[in-house]
Design a protein around this nucleic acid. Structure first.
Length: 888
DNA sequence: TGAGGAGCTA
DNA sequence: ACGTAGCTCCTCAA
């Protein structure tokens, strides 16, 4: 035996994961998609600690495979009667295996044997190779492996502490040597494995016998000599003891198909590891892994690499020379765009993954920009988050009119519910390329030091883009989303950029007037509220309000929130019905006014120097495929109340153009039409084809009356249900919303489904298909993945089911609107009128007086024919001097 | 700084 | 526990 300075760490994966599962409350460890992670977290946490403390050269983790082991063959009752493992446990084992493998650690699974046998076999291999061996296991059977070379790491309570079991400590604790531990366990029995021993015999008695007679065979030979009741018991249970002794021997000669050298702790796959941690939402654990091992010690896989990119700083003519032969260019820049102003200095260009060129746009004159413009226009461009950059470039006269690839958009389509689509993360996930920090550009030094680094950063990003995009584009095609990507999302980029750059004009004086008005209203309501309770209180503080309502005024408790009782408008209105306390009225009025005030104050802050508000549309945020709007959000401007609608009066047509108007065009009931189309429900389709008032029509069917006999109460019930269905409404939810009994709500739903049976079939089918395929699909093939449909947790599963019901409908509506925007925008190309805003099923267009009729026609035609459904797409159009006026 | 509560839209 | 998808404001505790 040669002495080598190596150590082998062997881990019983199943037993430790099981301990972790029970040590950490499962309800506290789950991803947003419903994957339970408590066992994974606990196991990996333990693993990181032991790797840090022991720094082994060789590592393996062994798992049991099924329960068909040789032990079961010999003893049918082996491990029978065990409490069933909770369903959350098993799915975590596979993920643990994946993580362990990605860490460069050998995963051992051997059919027909238990993890312990594999550990024993590998412990023998390590011993023979001259390594120090540590066995980490939560199963006491492993104690028999302990000797001068092999130490057992046995977890104490919880998962953070390990006992180092050596022959000495085993002797001390159990009174027998490791070689006799098996005998002790056989005599005592093992409840968890359904191996009864000698009744009444514990560790102490067993140890005494074993010491007296040497070993278990010695004890059994002398069983007749043992006195008393226990002696009798032993003689009665010899067969059990012999069976136990046979079964608890760990086999150290299992053919694992690998040798000691195969257990070397390898490089792993950091890209995979990072992706797994990302998927499991283990931010802190990921940091701990890096912190403990440091940059060096985290195994650097073959796939993870900082690619050396040569970044040259050039002037524009120099750049044009370099890209003369390139057809495809990747671009990146330090573009910023805020409050209607764009800024950019460093433009990075790359045509190959290991080289990039940067130009200082601040140094480029008009003719250089013009040359750059025509050069870029003639090429296929790949950009990450192109819209922001295109907007900022425009401020310098660089007019890029769209791109052939956008890595953020592509990544979004592939995984539409991710939190962010940072290039560094996508590059790492998809190609294993790590974008390094720092580094400086070389070449013609036209930048100062700070910009040198900026230049290098963007050069490196540009260089990474081509490979990243190729990988993403392939995945997009494999998922049959080429159409959504290339014919919808990418062409939409310049359309949205133009809308954002245009912004919408606001009446600033009117806005200030509203602020004053709403402020006064809020102050009045606040005073009245204070008067009603005799003192002041912060009306914006739910905590203080709870003190007033439930302690001071002793009102009945409302629905619970995480931190107390709700004070939301619905609850306050109910309290008012019960108590008629005037404070509640004034509080509600105060809430309304302050909300409106905040809205107008917020809007005023975002008015740019050109007197217009430039929102930013997010194209990679909504998991269903909708756009979202921010800074400011123009998709939630009040409309339901009269005061709210007044805010819409300050959004006005271009004041620079005499008699210009805003035109608004919206789809009527697009989601219900999509529901009719997708379900193929003949009755619903007929209703739309006949152009009936939908809710009256449905009401007449549900209540079995003539269409003219549907009263407003019936109509609103049916309306609530129709919309509710699209969201996965339950009978309970419907009853709450309509303030009717659950029975009546249930009845209503049954009537509905009886008349519109295909709708029910369709809704059921959507969920079932999503469960089978893992994702839902819109009419254009846009996907949304819903792994939580398989969650063990009811609440998460239900949420996923509702999302599955809604995603194809909301998403298809988004598809249709996006197509319509492209077509409208295309046809407005020759006109002066331009699209300004989109609010999901509505677009707002700034129209020149002479183009009003033409634009109305274009919008009606293109929105109406954007996609052919089984039912017509109805479009309502209106014009006016303000958004408010246009809608009337 | 971030979580929680509240409220606005389609 | 009980209707989808968003964004922004305020308060309060860390």
């Amino acid at each position: 035996m040669t002495q080598v300075n190596e150590s082998l760490l062997l881990i019983d994966g199943h037993s430790l994961a099981y301990r972790a599962f029970h040590a950490l409350p499962v309800e506290n460890f789950a991803t947003t998609t419903g994957q339970s992670t408590n066992a994974i977290y606990g196991f990996i946490s333990m693993l990181i600690n032991v790797l840090r403390d022991e720094s082994p050269s060789h590592v393996a983790v062994a798992f049991d495979l099924g329960r068909e082991t040789f032990r079961l063959e010999e003893y049918a009752e082996y491990k029978a009667g065990r409490a069933k493992t909770p369903p959350e446990f098993h799915p975590q084992i596979d993920l643990i295996k994946d993580i362990v493998a990605a860490m460069g650690i050998t995963v051992v699974v051997k059919e027909g044997f238990e993890a312990d046998d594999a550990l024993a076999t590998m412990a023998r291999m390590g011993t023979e190779a001259g390594a120090r061996v540590e066995v980490m296991s939560g199963d006491k059977d492993s104690f028999q492996l302990s000797n001068e070379i092999v130490t057992i790491l046995y977890p104490k309570r919880g998962v953070s502490d390990l006992n180092r079991m050596t022959p000495e400590s085993i002797e001390e604790k159990y009174g027998v040597s490791p070689s006799n531990y098996r005998g002790l366990a056989a005599l005592v029995g093992e409840k968890a494995d359904n191996l009864p021993g000698v009744p009444g015999v514990g560790d102490k008695t067993a140890a005494k016998w074993l010491t007296t007679y040497g070993d278990l065979p010695g004890v059994l030979e002398n069983a007749g000599a043992i006195k008393g009741k226990v002696g009798e018991k032993l003689r009665d249970h010899v067969a059990d003891v012999e069976r136990n002794f046979k079964l608890n021997r760990l086999l150290d000669d299992v053919d694992l198909g690998l040798g000691y050298a195969d257990l070397k702790w390898g490089d792993g796959d950091p890209a995979e590891l990072s992706s797994l941690f990302d998927q499991l939402e283990f931010q802190a654990l990921g940091k701990r892994l890096s912190a403990i091992f440091g940059e060096e010690a985290v195994p650097e896989g073959a796939d993870r690499r900082v690619r050396e990119v040569s970044v040259d700083a050039l002037d524009v003519p120099g750049l044009l020379g370099k890209i003369a032969d390139a057809d495809v260019l990747a671009l990146d820049s330090d573009a910023r765009y805020e409050l209607g102003r764009g800024d950019v200095r460093v433009l990075a260009v790359s045509a190959t993954p290991d080289e990039a060129w940067v130009v200082d746009l601040a140094e480029a004159g008009p003719s250089a920009i013009a040359d750059l413009n025509s050069a870029l226009r003639a090429r296929t461009l790949i950009v990450h988050s192109a819209k922001t950059q295109i907007k900022a470039w425009r401020s310098l006269g660089l007019e890029v009119d769209g791109v052939a690839g956008d890595t953020a958009l592509a990544a979004y389509l592939l995984v539409p519910d991710q939190r962010s689509y940072e290039l560094s993360q996508i590059a790492l996930d998809r190609t294993g390329v790590e974008l390094s920090e720092g580094g400086e550009a070389s070449g013609q030094l036209t930048f100062d030091l700070e910009s040198e680094q900026t230049a290098h950063t963007h050069g490196q990003r540009a260089a990474a883009l081509l490979d990243v995009h190729a990988v993403l584009a392939k995945a997009i095609d494999e998922a049959d989303m080429g159409l959504v990507y290339r014919d919808i999302e990418l062409p939409l980029v310049p359309v949205l950029a133009r809308m954002e750059l245009a912004g919408i004009a606001v009446d600033e004086a009117g806005l200030s007037g509203l602020i004053d008005e709403f402020t006064k209203q809020a102050e009045t309501s606040a005073e009245l509220a204070y008067e009603a309770i005799g003192h002041e209180v912060n009306l914006g503080s739910p905590k203080q309000l709870q003190a007033v309502l439930f302690e001071e005024l002793d009102m009945p408790k409302t629905k619970r929130t995480k931190t107390g009782y709700t004070t939301d408008a619905e609850a306050l209105a109910e309290l008012f019905i019960k108590t008629e306390h005037p404070f509640l009225q004034h509080l509600l009025a105060y809430r309304d006014s302050t909300k409106l005030k905040q809205t107008v104050v917020g809007l005023l802050k975002t008015v740019a120097e050109d007197g217009r508000i430039h929102t930013t549309y997010q194209q990679t945020v909504a998991a269903t495929g909708r756009l979202s709007s921010l800074d400011p959000n123009l998709q939630n401007i009040p409309v339901r109340t009269e005061s709210g609608r007044r805010i819409r009066e300050i959004f006005i047509a271009d004041p620079q153009v005499e008699d210009s108007r805003l035109l608004t065009a919206d789809y009527s009931q697009i989601e219900m039409r999509i529901m009719a189309h997708l379900s193929g429900d003949a009755a619903l389709i007929q209703a739309f084809k006949d152009g009936e008032d939908l809710h009256s029509y449905v009401g007449s069917k549900v209540f079995g009356v003539g269409i003219d006999e549907v009263d407003s109460a019936m109509r609103s019930k049916v309306k609530a249900m129709s919309y509710g269905l699209v969201y996965g409404l339950s009978a309970y939810g419907l009853s709450r919303q309509l303030a009717i009994g659950v029975d009546e709500a249930k009845n209503l739903m049954e009537q509905y489904f009886e008349r519109f049976g295909a709708v029910k079939d369709y809704l059921d089918e959507i969920v079932e298909q999503a469960r089978a395929k893992g994702y839902t699909e819109t009419i254009m093939g846009r996907r949304r993945y819903l792994p939580a449909l398989h969650s063990d947790r009811r609440q998460l599963r239900d949420m996923a089911e509702r999302a599955a019901l809604n995603a194809p409908i909301q998403g298809s509506a988004a598809d249709i609107m996006k197509i319509a925007m492209l077509r409208v925008s295309h046809r407005l190309g020759d006109l002066k009128s331009t699209v300004l805003l989109q609010v999901h099923d509505e677009i707002i267009v700034d129209v020149r007086p002479e183009e009003t009729e033409a634009v109305a026609k274009i919008v009606t035609e293109e929105m109406g024919s954007a996609y052919e459904l089984e039912v017509p797409l109805d479009v309502n159009v209106g014009t006016g001097i303000s958004w408010h006026a246009a809608a009337h």
